[in-house]
């Protein structure tokens, strides 16, 4: 039992892959290296899939790609409102990044989303996006007024939300991925064969995609809340 505990704690540590020897050494975590792999995969796929796009006779791959992008656009339009156009690509990027990050455990790599610093960074980006949009499309005064809606009584709660929303986004993603990771480690310790593979479909695939959807959906929802009725 002690061995399991030690192994688990070891697996939960965020390893530093290497250190850049400038400014007293900048540590580069495993999560960052895996993120680079994820980025490389998406970049290569994006370039490969968007070669030879045709307006008149789309192939099967292009049709699927267009359907996916159209779905993303529709989702952004429904959730964010009239200013959706500049947000859809970011939401899509985050969805692709979190999605592959959550699933990459299947290929034996450490999911970057298991590192709380990564989910924190994602949450910071969402924070900037949500409140940046609120001020960008309502103006300084209108953006401030948004904090007193739907009634001035809620002002303190709305202000607290500025911190709570990203914190919740960060912890939810991190907690789910770590939770799934711990459960999978325990199952692998108890039953080394067959059962982990079956349960992995739920904990790695399903939960990973659900958390991706939740993160993107909440970010879009919060953004839309601030700017949906902005001119």
């Amino acid at each position: 039992m002690e061995a399991l505990k030690e192994a688990l704690m070891g697996a939960l540590e965020n390893h530093v892959a290497f250190t850049i020897p400038v400014l007293g050494g900048i540590p580069v975590a495993d999560a960052v290296v895996v993120t680079w792999i994820v980025m490389a995969v998406w970049m290569i796929l994006a370039l490969a899939l968007t070669r030879r796009l045709s307006v008149r006779s789309p192939g099967r791959v292009q049709t699927a790609l267009e359907a996916a992008v159209a779905f993303l656009n529709g989702f952004a339009r429904d959730t964010i409102g009239p200013h959706w156009r500049s947000f859809a690509p970011y939401l899509g990027t985050v969805a692709l990044y979190i999605g592959l990050s959550n699933l990459i455990g299947i290929f034996g790599l450490t999911p970057p989303t298991k590192d709380i610093s990564v989910t924190a960074a994602l949450a910071v980006m969402s924070l900037v996006l949500i409140y940046g949009a609120q001020f960008r499309y309502n103006g300084l005064l209108g953006g401030l007024k948004k904090f007193a809606e739907p009634m001035p009584l809620l002002l303190p709660i709305n202000l607290m939300e500025v911190a709570i929303r990203p914190m919740a986004l960060c912890m939810r993603l991190f907690g789910n991925i770590v939770g799934a990771f711990i459960i999978m480690e325990l199952i692998k310790f108890l039953v080394p064969a067959v059962v982990p593979a079956v349960l992995s479909i739920y904990f790695d695939l399903f939960d990973g995609l659900i958390q991706m959807a939740v993160f993107v959906f909440l970010t879009a929802l919060f953004t839309g809340e601030g700017i949906k009725d902005a001119a």
Partner: peptide, 27 residues
């Protein structure tokens, strides 16, 4: 487990921005 590492946060933000710029243009 719950140690926020500034370098990872910064790297991730930069990575996200790069990926966003790339995918926005090419995908």
């Amino acid at each position: 487990m719950l140690d926020f590492q500034l370098s990872t946060i910064v790297f991730t933000i930069v990575n996200l921005l790069v990926l966003y710029g790339f995918l926005r243009k090419f995908l």
